[in-house]
């Protein structure tokens, strides 16, 4: 705080603090508090609002626990989000290593440009692109039929497989960047020292590079997991009737049922369980929140 004042003077400091406070309070804290309050009130016809029935209750939360289908969807969401996280990690770790330590820095710049270009297109369009690619008459089936790997088109958009593909594609870069940063920060001499002492490539990764990049891996995993569990667009576009995402149920409560109260309760359940899940994973990986924030 002292440092901020010294550096930017009183007026600029006040503006900066005020803007941060506005963002935090008006756009994060207050809306959440309002929804939190909603989640404990009943969804009532307008004429009963403020009446004797308008009381605080846990009924909205109970609705979830009384619905096996919703519980099922909830755990599928957690399961498949973890699945997407694992796939992203498996793809990005080697890629991040190659980008950070194997390629020359000029090549890395080109590589990043190529990786970032798809981000310029909105998430809806990117999901929809996958919808086209994966459809029965789409390019993927056409190619596979063409080179003779399959005899008849495969229905890709069924179950969770298409959602997984879409989510991996949508959020993979959120895994790549933290891991890339972590590995870049590792002194290359450490990798060479390990090799010089006789370690195989696998051993060097296991004992030197992965322990060093653990905070990056953890923050990538947390981000991808949270984004997946909270994603609406990708599941809406790419899921089918037999694969529903928990966010879709929240959306249905809020926008189709107009029941913001139950919707809020569901949203907070998702938030709470995501936090528990993430802290559990962090505990297992032995990573602290401070490491991730870096």
């Amino acid at each position: 705080m002292q440092e901020l004042l010294r550096r930017y003077g009183i007026s600029l400091s006040v503006i900066m603090v005020a803007m941060t406070a506005f963002w935090l309070l008006a756009l994060v804290v207050i809306p959440n508090l309002v929804l939190f309050k909603f989640s404990f009130r009943l969804y009532l016809p307008v004429d009963q609002l403020g009446g004797p029935n308008d009381v605080y209750t846990l009924k909205n939360y109970a609705t979830f626990f009384e619905s096996p289908i919703h519980i099922n969807v909830f755990f599928s969401t957690i399961l498949y989000s973890s699945f997407v996280t694992a796939i992203c990690l498996a793809i990005t770790y080697p890629l991040a290593y190659i980008l950070a330590k194997v390629l020359k820095s000029t090549d890395t710049a080109t590589f990043f440009l190529v990786l970032l270009v798809p981000l310029w297109v909105s998430e809806i369009l990117r999901s929809f692109a996958w919808f086209i690619i994966l459809s029965m008459q789409g390019p993927l089936n056409a190619v596979l039929l063409g080179i003779g790997i399959i005899d008849k088109p495969i229905r890709w958009i069924t179950g969770f497989q298409s959602v997984i593909v879409g989510l991996v594609y949508a959020y993979i870069l959120f895994m790549l960047f933290p891991i890339y940063n972590a590995i870049s920060a590792l002194d290359t001499n450490q990798i060479e020292a390990s090799e010089d002492l006789g370690a195989s490539m696998w051993r060097t990764h296991w004992r030197v590079i992965i322990p060093h990049s653990k905070p990056g891996i953890a923050s990538g995993c947390v981000m991808v997991f949270m984004l997946c569990a909270g994603s609406v667009i990708v599941p809406t576009t790419l899921a089918s009737t037999n694969s529903r995402w928990f966010t879709e149920i929240i959306q249905q409560w809020m926008f189709e049922g107009l029941d913001w109260n139950t919707g809020s309760a569901y949203a907070f359940l998702l938030l709470a369980l995501c936090i528990i899940f993430v802290s559990l994973v962090m505990r297992i990986l032995n990573v602290r929140l401070v490491d991730i924030a870096k």
């Binding site: 002194d187 001499n189 390990s194 090799e195 010089d196 006789g198």
Partner: peptide, 21 residues
């Protein structure tokens, strides 16, 4: 022959000790 198979040991200028061990 890769460094891990040579009968040499290198001491780096910055030592390159493993800080996590």
């Amino acid at each position: 022959i890769r460094p891990n198979a040579r009968p040499t040991a290198l001491i780096f200028q910055n030592l390159a000790l493993f800080p996590l061990m």
